[in-house]
């Protein structure tokens, strides 16, 4: 028989190789995204400034003050040949220079990073909490299929899962803020507070938007986890474990869990990909001034540089999350050997 252990000694180096390979592919993808974003602006018919400034403004400036137009073009790096502009654009991105906002006279990077912080304050705990709740409830409901928890949770989550988050958000807002006056109607913090009082105040403001996000994501996580557990439970190796006399709870912890968590990790990573852009609706409803809100206003105000950076950031998040899923899979699943 062929020497079958090539894999063992080279296991680690092989895994390292796969991970390196995935990293390179991701870098390539990001480069491609950056380039596409450039092409979208620059190769659209007409002067790219039209796309940046909008028809009205462009033609007004063009006829009243052509020199100003040139100046604006220079400011946005739109002078020179296409090749020159591309190189300059790449250079700017490498230096994390995303230009100036159109509507607010600040650098795009400053605005976006500041807003990103507020989005993460909401999205990170929401992702973690819903991952935990979804997993715990899903495992229990899948393991005790047709048990009480399953019979209550499954129809409930299916219904909740079909309601768009902005509807739930408005519902929560009406009920808890307007009618019951338990939580603030909007915003992220009351003015004039510092230290511990400020943090408590922010958390109080966070309650509703966070609950809505956790609720909707827990529902979909629950449905996924439950189906993974049920699927694994039906596998032949689970029968083997039971036939070996492995006690029931140990069957769950030793055999079912790891196999069910593997696909669960993938959907969690996909959620991470939406971390920047996934909360637009909720942010708008609760006037939470994070990335979603920035994107929303940038689009209505045609603030192109901000839109471009949001687009890049969202794309990069997606790429990072998919490579995260790949790397985790390589580390967790011994079967993955080939690129």
């Amino acid at each position: 028989m062929l020497f079958p252990f090539r894999g063992f000694e080279r296991d680690l180096s092989m895994k390292r190789k796969i991970i390196l390979n995935r990293l390179l592919i991701s870098l390539g993808t990001i480069f491609l995204i950056v380039t596409i974003s450039f092409i979208l602006v620059n190769l659209m018919p007409g002067d790219p400034l039209v796309n940046i400034m909008g028809d009205d403004q462009y033609y007004r400036v063009k006829y009243s003050d052509p020199e100003l137009l040139e100046e604006i073009a220079k400011k946005y790096g739109l002078d020179g040949s296409l090749g020159e502009r591309y190189v300059k654009y790449l250079g700017n991105i490498l230096r994390l220079d995303f230009g100036f906002s159109f509507t607010r006279n600040r650098s795009v990077l400053d605005i976006v990073l500041y807003r990103l912080r507020w989005t993460l304050v909401l999205a990170v705990p929401a992702t973690i909490l819903s991952a935990l709740f979804g997993a715990l409830l899903g495992i229990r409901a899948g393991w005790y299929q047709n048990g009480l928890l399953d019979r209550i949770m499954t129809p409930l989550t299916l219904v909740l899962n079909t309601i768009p988050t902005n509807c739930t958000a408005i519902l929560f807002l009406t009920l808890f803020s307007y009618k019951l006056r338990l939580f603030p109607i909007s915003g992220m913090a009351s003015g004039g507070l510092t230290g511990g009082a400020y943090i408590r105040d922010v958390m109080w403001h966070m309650c509703l938007p966070l609950s809505v996000m956790v609720l909707s994501r827990t529902c979909s996580n629950f449905i996924h986890m439950k189906s993974y557990v049920i699927q694994v439970k039906g596998e032949e190796y689970i029968l083997t474990a039971v036939a070996k006399g492995v006690p029931k709870t140990k069957v769950l912890f030793r055999h079912v869990l790891k196999n069910a968590l593997l696909p669960y990790v993938t959907i969690l990573c996909m959620q991470f990909g939406h971390i920047v852009s996934g909360s637009v609706m909720i942010e708008v409803v609760f006037s939470w001034v994070g990335m979603g809100n920035v994107m929303n206003t940038a689009i209505s105000a045609s603030d192109f540089p901000i839109m471009q950076m949001c687009f890049l950031l969202t794309a990069v998040c997606m790429v990072v999350s998919s490579i995260l899923a790949d790397v985790l899979y390589v580390l967790l699943d011994p079967r993955i050997k080939e690129v």
Binding site: L239, T240, D333
Partner: peptide
């Protein structure tokens, strides 16, 4: 003891 089919999925792939 019960011995499952070797050709099948009788062993836990992650253990």
């Amino acid at each position: 003891s019960y011995i499952p089919q070797g050709g099948g999925n009788g062993l836990n792939p992650l253990m």
